[in-house]
Simulated scan of single mutants.
Amino acid sequence: MDDDTPQEIGKLGYTVGIASCLDGVVEGKQLFRVEAGNCCDHALEQASVLLDSARRASFIGVMDDEPVLVWASHFLSEMAKALMDDAHMGLHSKE
């Protein structure tokens, strides 16, 4: 990474930019991909925030019969999974 990156950034490693999410129109193509070079620590923190938002949207969507919130929960969960998968690959590439 950059020489001016602080030491405390990226203790766990860096994202590799392989994981993707949300199916595209073309079979086998995804709409979004995790950007390589982000610190895994931050990626995992953001995945936690996304999962908490997904949990809340899912609960409210089911309780209030709001399908759009259930779909939002689905998309947020896919994004969180991509972040966690990519961070996991970055952790293993550090070893």
Rank of each mutant, 00 (worst) to 15 (best):
M89D: 14
D3C: 06
L50K: 06
C39P: 11
I60D: 06
L44F: 03
S20A: 07
R55V: 06
T15P: 02
D41T: 05
L91H: 07
Q7M: 12
D86L: 01
A19L: 02
L50F: 15
E27C: 03
L76N: 01
K11A: 07
P6A: 05
L91A: 04
F32H: 08
A82K: 03
E95K: 10
V62S: 12
E27Q: 07
S93N: 09
L44N: 04
D4F: 10
E95P: 07
M1C: 09
L22V: 15
D86E: 06
M84V: 15
A82P: 05
Q46G: 02
R56Q: 07
D23K: 14
Q30C: 03
D3H: 10
Q46P: 00
M79S: 01
V26C: 01
A19S: 14
S53F: 02
I18M: 05
I60T: 08
H74A: 10
A47V: 06
C21T: 12
D64N: 15
V26T: 15
K94E: 14
G24F: 03
L12G: 11
S58Q: 15
H92P: 01
R55G: 12
Y14K: 11
H88M: 12
A87V: 00
L76G: 03
L76W: 09
E78P: 00
D4Q: 09
V16G: 04
T15V: 01
D4R: 09
E27T: 04
K81G: 03
P67L: 07
L31G: 05
K81I: 11
H74E: 12
L83I: 02
G17E: 09
L31I: 06
C40E: 05
S58I: 00
L83Q: 06
H74P: 00
W71S: 09
M1Q: 12
Q7G: 10
S73P: 08
G90D: 00
D65C: 12
H88N: 10
K81D: 09
K94I: 00
G24S: 01
F59H: 03
L12N: 03
I9D: 08
E35D: 12
L69Q: 11
S93P: 04
M63Q: 15
R55C: 07
L22T: 10
F59T: 12
G17N: 07
L83E: 06
C40M: 05
C40S: 13
L12A: 11
K29G: 01
D64I: 05
A72I: 10
L51T: 05
M63A: 15
A87Q: 05
D52S: 10
D86W: 07
L50D: 00
L83S: 01
T15M: 03
A87D: 01
F59M: 08
S73D: 11
E78S: 13
S77Y: 10
F75L: 14
L44A: 08
I9V: 15
G10M: 01
M79W: 02
V62E: 15
E95L: 11
A54N: 04
L69D: 09
I9H: 09
E8N: 12
V70T: 06
V16L: 09
V16I: 04
E95Y: 11
H92E: 14
H42V: 11
